[in-house]
Amino acid sequence: MPDIDSFCSKVSPHLLSLLRIIVAFLFMQHGAQKLFGFPAAPGTVTVELLSLIGLAGVLEFFGGLLILVGLLTRPIAFLLSGQMAVAYFMAHAPQGFWPVVNKGELAVLYCFMFLYLAAAGAGPWSIDQLRRKLT
């Protein structure tokens, strides 16, 4: 019978890449809604590009795209982690202490997911890894 630790050590780098891809794909949707109005939801409007929410949309969409393909993952993930912390404390925390009450669970979750990616890197399925192999 195979050793579970051996199996986990083989698949965990690939799961890291899969986690990065899924998180980035979901995160990009928030930016796409702000910038392009897609995917459309009731009450969705595009925002002014030269506004705080417009900047958030640019970071969410294009930063998410860089995370999705695994390019400059660590610095971009660190930047996006900070963006989500700022978003939480500016938009959600004033509405109440508990994230489930102030609707800030996603901001907190994204903040710590990106902080983890900043520390762990992109994983094997990434442009970062491809660039590392070529040098």
Rank of each mutant, 00 (worst) to 15 (best):
L115N: 00
F7N: 10
T46I: 10
V69L: 05
L134Q: 15
S81T: 01
A119K: 11
S6N: 12
L115P: 01
A24G: 06
L80S: 04
I53V: 14
I76E: 07
V101E: 15
I127F: 11
A40I: 10
I76L: 07
L79S: 15
L109H: 01
I21N: 13
L50M: 15
L68D: 08
F25I: 11
G63N: 04
N102E: 03
P75Y: 01
L68H: 05
L134Y: 13
A119T: 13
A91T: 12
A107H: 05
A24D: 08
Q95A: 15
V58G: 05
V100N: 06
G31S: 01
V101N: 15
T73C: 00
Q83L: 14
M1E: 11
V101T: 15
M113W: 00
V23L: 08
I127R: 10
V58L: 12
T44K: 03
L52N: 15
F61C: 00
L65T: 06
H30C: 03
L130D: 12
S9Q: 14
L71V: 08
E105G: 03
V108C: 08
A85C: 04
S9L: 13
Y88R: 00
I127P: 10
V47Y: 11
L19E: 14
S126E: 02
A24H: 05
V100C: 04
